[in-house]
Structures are given as structure tokens and as C-alpha cells.
Design a protein around this nucleic acid. Structure first.
Length: 303
DNA sequence: AACCAGGACTCTG
DNA sequence: CAGAGTCCTGGT
């Protein structure tokens, strides 16, 4: 059965544009499935699989939420999940911070309505992030979708089937050869070894969650296939740590363009610069700069 | 058909 | 600590 409700502009902080956000290339998970003018995603709420359908007619328009479930009305829980997923309670001081910066104020306008998308859970985020390393968004998306369709739980609504990312137990049933066949390449063994380690390490997620950003970074870096960039993606999207500033080529290019007069600067220096300069807003600044660098055409010219 | 883009890892200086 | 080569595959 299905239920529905709306989330109105004055219920959340700041601006929100669903479509813009979902298409911004964030590697927390692949884009939601689009059918007609709505976006669908399968989520797990209190051990129950729920298909969520989201519709929004542009920036700050009412977000129409419909969900499909076996049990009764769980609108409160679904709403809570959506607020978490798109960080709808986020800190408005970020807007003021970025608005008052000479280098960043144009970028705020360009990205109006863009939000961080939080991953469904740390495990999915960690494995997906490892798969994103040295990979294109397109190929990464294809691989993750095939992993879901081949090995995750599924729910059917009407004609459509929706898939979860596999749990650690389900994931570890995949052979290395199968993962390679799905396009994960040499990352396959990293993904499997890390999944195995997390499954054996009892309370891994809670331990990370209770650490400072700095300690968590060092800990996640120990996982196979996780370097500085992937570590920061995991902490930002999977563990809600907003100090993370994942530095990929795009972030390196635009940060050096804006703050280092386009000189060559190592990723390591970019990271520590961002921590000093942006503090707790680093994660959002990264998202806004990344999207701007990809979408504005500016970086293509500079290349 | 050769070459490049995209991060992590490993080895070397 | 920095720099270089290798890994896989889709794109030119």
C-alpha cells in the first residue's frame, strides 16, 4: 500500500532542488531511478524495505513524497529519513560564510538548492567509494547498479523492481571474478578485502562515528583501497563528518585557481588549506566547488 | 590503434 | 616526504 505527504519550503533550512542535487555527481550512491518526473529509491527503515517516490517541480517547490510499504503509516520515519538523506536541517551559517567570501559568493548563486546526499549506510558508502577511485562517474555508476541488481534485496512496485545495495554478508558471496565482470577492475580485491575486514570488525561503524574527524580519517585510511580522497568521501557521505574535503582532480584545479593563482599544489596541501580556511564548512564548500568546476565550463577552458 | 583520464598503492630517491 | 610507474576500462 502507499501513503503520501509533502515537505514544504518553510519546513527545512535554506534552499533545496531535488533534481539538481541528484544530478550533481556525488559518489555517495548512484542517482535515484527516474520514471516520468519522479525519482525512486529503495531504503530500509526499521528492518523494513520501503520504496520512496519523490517529486518536486523545481527549486523550493513542495517536495511530494509517496512511499510503498507492507505495514501501516510510517510517514514520520520516512520524513526523518528524507531530512537526513538531503541534510535538510543543515547549518544556515554556511550560507553566510560562503556569501561573505569574495572567492565563493558567485559559486553560491550557481549552486542554489544543492545539498549533500548522505549515503544509506556506512558499508554501502565505503565499498562504493573504493569503487569510485581512479574511475569515471559513468563507469562507476554502471558497476554499482549491477552489484545492486545482482546481489541486493529487491522490492517490486507495479512494473518496476528496486534494489538495495547488498549487506556485507551478501556482498562477500560475490567472487572476485564476478566483480571484475561487473567492471570494478583491479578495485575488486580491495572491495572484497575491506568488506571482509568490516564484517569481522564488530562495531566498526560506531567506533568511527565516535571519533574526532582527524582520528576517523587515520582509521579509515587503513582500509585497503582507501586513500586520502576516498577516506574523505567516506567520512563526508557515510559518517556525516562535514570537515572532510575530498580532493580529486577537479577540486585540486578549482582550489588552486581560486586560492593559489593556478600554481601546482599537492592534494595534501590543498586539504590542510581547506581545513584551516573552511573549517566545519569544508564538506559543503567542496560540494559546491566540485559542481561548479564540472558544470560551469570554467575548468574546461582552464585545462 | 595508440593514448589519456581517473586515485591508490608500491617502490625509489 | 615527493615523484614515478602500475593497475582497469571507456573514451577519443
Amino acid at each position: 500500500m502507499s501513503n503520501s505527504f509533502e515537505i514544504l519550503y518553510d519546513e527545512y533550512e535554506g534552499d533545496f532542488d531535488l533534481e539538481f542535487t541528484l544530478n550533481s555527481g556525488q559518489t555517495s550512491h548512484p542517482p535515484f531511478k527516474k520514471l516520468d518526473d519522479s525519482y525512486y529509491e529503495l531504503v530500509e527503515i526499521n528492518d523494513e524495505l520501503v520504496v520512496i517516490k519523490l517529486t518536486q517541480d523545481g527549486l523550493n517547490a513542495p517536495l511530494i513524497v509517496e512511499y510503498f510499504t507492507q505495514k501501516q503509516d510510517i510517514s514520520n520515519l520516512v520524513k526523518e529519513r528524507i531530512f537526513y538523506m538531503f541534510d535538510l536541517n543543515y547549518d544556515m551559517k554556511f550560507y553566510n560564510f560562503i556569501k561573505n567570501s569574495d572567492e565563493l559568493s558567485d559559486i553560491l548563486e550557481f549552486n542554489r538548492g544543492l545539498r549533500i546526499i548522505r549515503a544509506h549506510n556506512p558499508f554501502e558508502c565505503i565499498i562504493s567509494s573504493i569503487c569510485s577511485a581512479n574511475n569515471s562517474i559513468k563507469r562507476w555508476t554502471k558497476t554499482i547498479e549491477k552489484i545492486r541488481e545482482g546481489y541486493g534485496k529487491s522490492v517490486q512496485v507495479g512494473e518496476e523492481t528496486f534494489y538495495m545495495f547488498p549487506t556485507p554478508e551478501e556482498f562477500l558471496k560475490i567472487s572476485e571474478k564476478s566483480l571484475k565482470d561487473l567492471g570494478a577492475g583491479y578495485r575488486s580485491s580491495y572491495m572484497l578485502n575491506t568488506a571482509n575486514l568490516i564484517l569481522k570488525h564488530d562495531d566498526f561503524n560506531n567506533e568511527i562515528l565516535n571519533m574526532s574527524y582527524e582520528d576517523a580519517f587515520k582509521e579509515v585510511l587503513k582500509l585497503e583501497g582507501v586513500g586520502p580522497k576516498v577516506a574523505d568521501c567516506i567520512l563526508l557521505y557515510g559518517f556525516n563528518m562535514n570537515k572532510a574535503y575530498p580532493v580529486d582532480v577537479w577540486i585540486n584545479r578549482i582550489t588552486t585557481y581560486l586560492y593559489f593563482n593556478s600554481k601546482k599544489v599537492s592534494n595534501k596541501r590543498i586539504m590542510s588549506f581547506a581545513h584551516d580556511k573552511f573549517g566545519v564548512y569544508a564538506g559543503y564548500v567542496q560540494l559546491y566547488l566540485f559542481n561548479y568546476a564540472r558544470m560551469s565550463g570554467l575548468m574546461d577552458k582552464l585545462k
